[in-house]
């Protein structure tokens, strides 16, 4: 176990993007907040029309917010936070994609595989450590980065509220921390399970390919979809592949039947004039969770993911420094 945690640390040492990208995203959120406040503070013209009223300055914007009903205030805060979370999630899923593709190919490319194989560490441990980064560590990083980004936004916004003589604690009172946290955690679990076969496939390509694996990893699914749809074979493989491909939380929220969450994007009674979105967050019930796990696609995906992971372990046994 001690050596396994060291293998995880080794992945974080090597793949600096797993730390660098979240820090960059946090810096971007900070800058976006500051730019937003700066623009509102120094504006002279109309910035936006909200609820039929012109927003011309920071104080008019804050005034509008404080006049909303508590539920509507929560809705705006939730929308902002979820949007931030979706951006962070999508960017880090791209990082995960390239991490998995490079994880077992890079060691052959730079010939360090001979050093790694000189350690008393099995191929199973090595491959599973890389899978653990994708399945556990990156979702944890997404959660922490999102939480920090949202905390930073709240802190900056409440400072602005305070400076403009509004009740700064209004923001904190109307923030649904537990609801948002549960929402993020369940969504990240669902997302990880849903993308597990893709992760296994990327790991397999990383150890299998003798050329940069991105070509094969992308080309084979594209060719399969092309053949299936061009010749109208009706194998269903196109649907299976396409529903696993889109990145980010959005893909699972928009009518995906395997969706565990019910984040309602349709307009409802909480729709806010001028804000074309609603803000209902509902944490899944036991029935929702059961129906997700009763879905045959979930289990097929897990089986395929484990199959590709097993293949990656088996193939790495015979990989040396020759590409």
């Amino acid at each position: 176990m001690h050596s396994f945690t060291t293998l995880l640390r080794r992945e974080l040492w090597e793949h600096t993007s797993l730390k660098g990208v979240p820090i960059t995203l946090l810096a971007f959120v900070l800058l976006a907040n500051l730019a937003f406040i700066f623009l509102l503070s120094n504006s002279t013209g109309t910035l936006s029309i909200v609820n039929g009223e012109e927003v011309r300055s920071l104080s008019s914007y804050l005034g509008f917010f404080t006049q909303l009903k508590p539920g509507q205030q929560t809705a705006i805060i939730n929308s902002t936070m979820i949007t931030t979370g979706m951006i962070i999630n999508s960017v880090l899923l791209i990082v995960m994609f390239f991490y998995l593709l490079d994880s077992l190919y890079g060691e052959r490319k730079d010939r360090t595989i001979l050093f790694w194989k000189s350690l008393p560490v099995s191929n199973k441990q090595t491959v599973l450590s890389k899978l653990t980064i994708a399945v556990i560590i990156i979702p944890v990083i997404i959660f922490i980065t999102t939480a920090l980004a949202n905390f930073m936004t709240l802190a900056i916004q409440s400072l602005v509220f305070y400076k403009n003589q509004y009740a700064a604690d209004l923001l904190w009172q109307q923030t649904d921390v537990s609801g948002l946290s549960m929402f993020s955690i369940f969504l990240l679990i669902q997302q990880t399970i849903w993308y597990f076969p893709v992760m296994g496939w990327l790991l397999f390509c990383s150890v299998w390919c003798r050329k940069p694996p991105i070509i094969v990893a992308v080309l084979i699914p594209v060719i399969l979809v092309f053949i299936d749809s061009s010749f109208m074979l009706g194998t269903g493989i196109s649907e299976i592949l396409l529903e696993r491909l889109p990145l980010g939380i959005m893909s699972m929220q928009l009518g995906n039947e395997s969706s565990l969450m019910a984040y309602n994007y349709s307009l409802n009674e909480q729709q806010l004039p001028g804000f074309n979105m609603s803000a209902g967050i509902s944490v899944p019930s036991i029935d929702d969770i059961l129906s997700f796990f009763m879905n045959v696609k979930v289990w097929m995906g897990l089986l395929i993911g484990f199959f590709f992971t097993g293949m990656a372990i088996s193939l790495r046994r015979w990989r040396d420094d020759s590409l």
Binding site: W13, E14, T16, D110, R111, T112, L114, F115, K117, S118, L119, P120, V121, S122, N123, Q125, R317, D321
Partner: peptide, 20 residues
Amino acid sequence: RAQLMHDISYISDVASLPEW
């Protein structure tokens, strides 16, 4: 292999240590 590496120490050449 992994069990063997408890008893064997291996140096390929100077290029095999990870640069990072």
